[in-house]
């Protein structure tokens, strides 16, 4: 097989486990029988999550794509096209934790370079796309994650860690390494995307309630 998007070494077999099968049943219900090829992306994602759950590396091997093609009655190449097009599908094995650093302009202005550097230092990874020697981390450069108010963002698997800087990144990675997963969200004193350190505007007037009108 072509090695540019899928590795030559592939597992022999893949079978959806019970948990995935239950999800698949729900996904397939959303599409009419003759349009079930539409379920290709959810199914790829289910396969990827199962791989993460079972093997610790959330990626989609070719055998899983073939199985999805069979289930959805599509040509295998159509599944490959989808899986290789979207960057959120991993077609190569990755580490236990997928560190995705946003380096688009807002995050970059707010210090994504520092976050990247901290990731490198803490994991020993040299370049984006590489996996650390211990197999725990894969560092990826991603485009805008859509959380610019809380820039810079470091996405770990499905969770956003916001308002990162060098030391916080290193601490986060140390936690992950120790098997703890800190709570996602802003790493500083703020609520969601609200201003840092509490409200900054509309301080004098109390929020109008309907009966005051």
């Amino acid at each position: 097989m072509n090695t540019t998007w899928a590795p030559a070494e592939q597992p022999e077999s893949f079978a959806f486990d019970d948990e995935s099968e239950a999800e698949i049943v729900n996904v397939l219900k959303k599409y009419p029988e003759e349009r079930k090829a539409s379920a290709v992306m959810p199914l790829l994602y289910i396969a990827q999550r199962q791989m993460g759950r079972v093997t610790g590396s959330a990626w989609i091997p070719l055998v899983a794509m073939d199985d999805i093609a069979r289930r959805l009655e599509m040509a295998p190449i159509r599944v490959y096209e989808v899986a290789s097009f979207y960057t959120m599908f991993n077609t190569k094995p990755i580490g236990r934790y997928h560190l995705q650093v946003c380096t688009t302009t807002p995050c970059w202005l707010r210090g994504s370079d520092v976050v990247t550097e901290a990731c490198r230092k803490a994991t020993g990874i040299h370049h984006f796309g590489e996996t650390s020697a211990d197999g725990l981390f894969t560092l990826t450069e991603v485009e805008c994650l859509g959380a610019c108010a809380n820039a810079p963002i470091l996405q770990v698997d499905d969770d956003y860690y916001e308002d990162m800087d060098g030391p916080r990144t290193e601490a986060l990675i140390a936690d992950l390494r120790a098997g703890r997963k800190p709570e996602a969200g802003p790493a500083i004193n703020r609520m969601c995307s609200a201003p840092e350190g509490g409200r900054k505007t509309l301080l004098e007037t109390s929020v109008s309630s309907p009966d005051q009108k």
Partner: peptide, 25 residues
């Protein structure tokens, strides 16, 4: 895909890396 009915060719990856390939070599 359409005329021959043997969907073996496809375009994988995206952007700079996009390429036409067969699914079996």
């Amino acid at each position: 895909t359409e005329v021959a009915g043997t969907p073996e060719l496809g375009m994988v990856s995206r952007g700079e890396n996009a390429e036409i390939t067969t699914y079996v070599q």
